[in-house]
């Protein structure tokens, strides 16, 4: 009898846990939906006609149209898209070229005193770069680099370097020491060691780092708005001009915002697995 009641109690508890699990799952879904809603609103509104975007209360069922997207494309989104693409891709490549050796020297062959170098890289991130804008502006003006793509390439490279070094270092630390030692005993030189042993292990991490640099460069606005105008203006600069000139055209702005968001959404999804780990500076896996 005692056994039976024990069994029943356990069964009851199982059902209760199952129900609780469902309850919390439902609550989680609701919370996730609330968080997701603004993005959903933006995408839905971008497919609305301008008049339909303003109905009160807002409607979920509507007749989708691409007219606002074509309005944005005829409204001069081409050049900003090109500038953004060029600046983002170029600076990301340069970041990787500089960050991989730096991270390598800070991880696989660490020298104790240089751990301070890591803190140097982190501390530049704590420096609000708002403070550096006036000197950078003056130097750029004196060098004739204002409103130039390369100026942004250089700045975004410097902006992303600290995070890239930290991220890649945390991935390099994963390479088992034994594997490296075995390779060296087998007579592998530095080049073979890097290309045959280390690279295959850390390539996914480096790819994630690149994607995160892409996200930051693509979204960067402060330097872009202060240092560029018509000749090198990126997507965010175009978008803010759009908000200021056509702030009342919600559907068109939603379409422009969606276009600007698409590349980073894809990059974010691709990098998702490594994102937390990378951005917590390797403190979390």
């Amino acid at each position: 009898m005692a056994k039976g009641s024990d069994h029943r109690r356990r069964h009851k508890r199982g059902t209760r846990e199952w129900a609780l699990g469902n309850f919390w799952t439902a609550v989680t879904w609701v919370a996730a939906f609330v968080l997701f809603f603004p993005v959903l609103w933006m995408v839905l509104t971008s497919f609305k006609a301008e008049k339909a975007a303003y109905t009160s209360p807002p409607r979920i069922v509507f007749h989708p149209t691409l007219s606002e997207f074509s309005q944005v494309f005829s409204g001069g989104v081409g050049p900003p898209l090109e500038h953004s693409l060029f600046v983002t891709i170029t600076s990301t490549v340069v970041v990787l070229v500089l960050a991989v050796p730096a991270a390598y020297s800070l991880s696989i062959r660490p020298v104790k005193r240089w751990s301070d170098a890591l803190f140097f890289f982190l501390s530049t991130k704590m420096l609000p770069y708002v403070a550096a804008i006036v000197p950078i502006y003056i130097v750029a003006r004196n060098l004739g680099l204002l409103d130039n793509d390369w100026e942004l390439v250089i700045l975004y490279t410097a902006m992303n370097l600290p995070i890239a070094v930290w991220m890649i270092r945390s991935f390099l630390l994963e390479v088992p020491k034994e594997v490296l030692e075995a390779a060296r005993i087998d007579g592998a030189n530095l080049w073979t060691e890097v290309t045959r042993v280390i690279m295959p292990i850390v390539v996914p991490g480096i790819a994630a780092t690149a994607l995160i640099c892409v996200i930051f460069s693509w979204n960067e606005f402060f330097f872009a708005v202060n240092l560029t105008a018509t000749k090198a203006g990126t997507m965010p600069v175009f978008l803010v001009g759009f908000i200021q000139s056509e702030g009342l055209y919600w559907a068109r702005l939603a379409a422009a915002s969606s276009i600007a968001s698409l590349p980073v959404i894809l990059a974010g999804w691709l990098a998702q697995k490594q994102l937390v780990r990378g951005l917590s500076l390797g403190a979390l896996k």
Partner: peptide
């Protein structure tokens, strides 16, 4: 789903 909020360009967030 929630990662979208973080990945979106700040200007798009501002517009929303």
């Amino acid at each position: 789903i929630v990662i979208l909020a973080w990945v979106l360009p700040e200007i798009a967030v501002a517009f929303i």
